[in-house]
Design a binder for these strands. Structure first.
Lengths: 341, 341
DNA sequence: ATTTAGCACTCGCTCTTTAAGAGTGCTAAC
DNA sequence: GTTAGCACTCTTAAAGAGCGAGTGCTAAAT
């Protein structure tokens, strides 16, 4: 268990390091007005904190920098109360240029705003369209063999794909099929269409469709969902201006990471509501070992839809960033719910 | 006018510089087997070529590097015949993983292949969907006030947007409107829909639609095209491994440029068929002053659809890249035309 | 009239040395 | 328990030496 003084010193040190991005020595800390101990005393405390794993040295006679454990402790126990939150909230409303009409524009702008305000990189993970409910579907033939299948969701999202029409299928049959699907499956989440069809509609098909046999492959093709959630970026290159990434060999993996969809999706996904912070190796990827990721989820009618995330160096300004992310995700939630009125 | 020998030396020098990315001195050139002159002679020629503006020095006693004018001359007059082209062509067919079904996947893969093969950055500018012809349109109400408008083109592309339904409009009227549009405007390019309606359909509307007056704003909203051509990237971060961009302050503007849609679109657009090369400042942007851009257009039924482009340092391997780009754009053209069979 | 050998000279790089500065850990005194 | 003092470590920046690549010019050779 840490003493009051240790807690205090740890917090002061991390605050200072976050601000100046340079190892902090005992003298620097002792210079603060609210500190009554001498540098020597502080040195002793620092040595203890280092032994406990909260601090590190860059070399034998350097000042201290926070370790990953230090940051974790700082984030969990030492963050100043989010009292300044109020001030920021007023802000974020103003930041959206004019009124944002479509959800995509909202996501895009949110990411941009966040990265502009923080100078870090931000990502918004869009809602998974496949979780939306089918409003209407349609198949529009393009040529004798190719058609476009279109699915409109209750949220106004449109999924579409090209499909190959089997030779055997007749236009009238196709129409019947579409009618059945629309009648029976409206309101079903896209992702569930497949199972619902198999469970409930084979009888109906058998009754109304002539060559039901050949339909199987066609239906599979029609309902083979592949698209992933969309990602909206802000400040992709901001990492380049962070002092700890001044080195090309260190930024490269990071930028490559940002460009790799799968990794980003995994990084930024979080089923949890609210706010999660992952520090350094907690992100479980080499390229992210010097970064922290903060995910905040936005919702619609209380349901988790997606996340807005910030990626920055481990010594990011947690306090500022957290309150920002918190208010921004709430603002997104508000606006999204406004859309649906 | 340059002498034979000057031409020869200029070409050898640029070839060497492109290969080794280091200033080339007289000794290096004289060491080549097919050179019979002494370093001193070459020094004289080099001085002349420098006076003529084809070469530069990095400092008073360094070897020479090509100037922008030098590269331009090299590209225009000195490029070895594209005899190796044949060899590459066989290649590019094989490089596509399995069969590519949709156009988007083709563009994406082409960009990836190109950047993998060159280690530079590549961009494919997708076709402008607004140049495609309307196959079918539809308006699907989501709520009492919001609807989704969907336009399917003859190429199977789907454009969609959300629109606000005026209170005054009745469902039956909406249906009529859509029917009229589909009957009268099938085969018209999306971009032209607006003018066609204004020119030819006002009479029809007046006849069939009740509140034709209020329709104006609604139609404007419906046909307000904003989407731009899509961009597909490959090797976005490849520039980081180019020796001339080892410096962070030099890459930063470049990467920022790559992320700026407007600039990229302008950079990569070219109405010309075939292949265009822009070197350094010819790209008319500070961030691109040390880069060359090569655009190759791909077509469908002989019509220019879009471009596949390569962005690399001015000392890129023009020969290799040009032949690659040439065959790749042709391959894209082939495959696109196959789709439409 | 070219071409070439020779040579002095210029830069850029790398390596070493030096000195200054920041910071630590330890000891002994307060 | 706290602190002053001090030896020691490590980093950084600056200065200087030496090397190598390359040039430009001159004078001789072809």
């Amino acid at each position: 268990m840490l003493t009051e003084r240790q807690l205090f010193i740890l917090r002061v040190l991390i605050d200072d390091y976050i601000k100046h991005v340079e190892p902090v020595g005992s003298r620097t800390i002792s210079k603060r007005e609210d500190i009554t101990y001498s540098p020597a005393t502080i040195r002793n405390e620092l040595a203890d904190l280092e032994d406990l794993g909260f601090l590190e040295k860059t070399h034998t006679s350097s000042g201290r920098i926070p370790s990953e454990k230090g940051y974790r402790f700082y984030v969990d126990h030492l963050l100043p109360s989010l009292s300044m939150k109020e001030r920021e909230i007023g802000h974020s409303e103003l930041l959206f240029t004019e009124k944002v009409q479509e959800a995509e524009a909202l996501f895009d702008q949110s990411a941009k705003i966040l990265s502009d305000l923080t100078n870090y990189t931000s990502v918004v993970l869009g809602p998974n369209a496949l979780d939306m409910k089918l409003k209407h579907m349609q198949i529009i033939p393009i040529s004798s063999q190719v058609a476009v299948a279109i699915f409109v969701t209750n949220t106004g999202h449109v999924e579409n794909r090209q499909i190959v029409l089997p030779d055997t299928i007749e236009p009238s049959e196709l129409e019947k099929l579409v009618n059945i699907l629309n009648e029976r499956l409206a309101g079903v989440r896209l992702i569930e269409l497949n199972t619902r069809i198999q469970k409930e509609l084979s009888a109906v098909f058998k009754k109304h469709l002539k060559d039901y046999q050949n339909m199987g492959v066609f239906l599979d093709q029609l309902l083979l969902w592949s698209k992933k959630e969309k990602l909206f970026y802000g400040g992709k290159t901001n990492m380049l201006s962070q002092p700890e990434f001044r080195d090309l060999d260190k930024v490269r993996p990071l930028l490559d990471f940002l460009e790799t969809r799968d990794l980003m999706e995994k990084l930024v996904s979080s089923s949890e509501k609210g706010l999660t912070i992952r520090i350094g190796t907690e992100n479980e990827h080499e390229a992210m070992k010097n970064c922290s990721v903060i995910n905040a989820s936005y919702t619609m009618h209380g349901k988790h839809l997606g996340t807005i995330s910030l990626i920055g160096p481990t010594r990011m300004e947690y306090q500022k960033v957290i309150s920002l992310l918190d208010s921004l995700s709430k603002e997104m939630t508000n606006r999204l719910n406004d859309f649906s009125n």
